[in-house]
Simulated scan of single mutants.
Amino acid sequence: MRDYLNSNEKNQFMVLQSIVQMMDGLRNSGVNGPKISSMLEDWTKRDNMTKAEHKNLKTSETFLRKFLASVYERLNSKEQDVIKKKLVKFDFKLIDDYTLKQIDRDIKDKITNAVLPRQQFYDWSSEIMAVKCNGCTQEWNTCQLHQVFDDNLVPESGFDCKNCKFAYTTGE
Rank of each mutant, 00 (worst) to 15 (best):
D106P: 01
K85F: 03
S77M: 10
N113L: 07
N134Y: 08
S38W: 10
S7M: 04
N56T: 12
T44C: 00
D47Q: 15
K110T: 03
N141I: 02
G171W: 10
T44V: 02
E41F: 14
A167K: 11
S38Y: 13
T169C: 12
K78M: 08
V82W: 01
S18L: 09
N134C: 07
V20G: 00
Q21A: 04
K66M: 08
R27D: 03
G25R: 10
Q17L: 06
F166T: 12
D123F: 05
F149K: 02
K55Q: 12
M1D: 01
W124C: 09
Y168A: 05
N6V: 02
I111V: 09
A114D: 13
K108M: 07
I19K: 03
E73R: 14
T169M: 14
Q17N: 10
V154E: 13
K89R: 15
I36K: 06
R46D: 15
Q147D: 15
V148Q: 13
K85E: 11
N11Y: 08
P34I: 15
I95R: 01
D96M: 00
N32I: 00
E53R: 11
G135W: 05
V31R: 08
Q21P: 00
N6H: 02
V71C: 12
V71G: 03
K58L: 12
G25I: 03
K84T: 07
L5V: 01
Y72V: 04
G171I: 14
T99A: 01
N6K: 03
R46I: 04
S7Q: 14
D160C: 12
K58R: 09
S157M: 09
C143L: 05
P155F: 09
M129H: 00
D81F: 09
K35D: 00
I111A: 05
K66R: 06
Y168G: 05
S18I: 04
Q147F: 06
Y98R: 07
I111W: 06
E9W: 07
G33D: 04
A114K: 08
Q144H: 04
Q102M: 10
T142R: 08
V115R: 14
I107V: 13
N134Q: 11
A167F: 11
C136M: 11
R118N: 06
L87C: 01
V71S: 09
Q17M: 06
S18A: 07
K78A: 15
K51A: 15
M129R: 14
E79C: 04
Y168I: 08
D81I: 15
K162R: 05
E53C: 04
A167V: 11
P155C: 07
T62A: 07
M49C: 05
K162M: 13
K86M: 10
S126M: 03
E139A: 11
L57V: 12
L64F: 05
I95H: 00
N152P: 02
N6T: 09
N8D: 12
S70W: 02
L100K: 10
M39I: 15
K66H: 06
F121D: 14
A114W: 01
N32D: 14
S38I: 04
T170N: 10
V154W: 06
N48M: 15
A52Q: 14
Q144F: 00
V20R: 00
P117H: 07
E139T: 07
T142L: 04
K84N: 08
S157G: 05
F90P: 06
T112R: 08
L145F: 13
K93I: 05
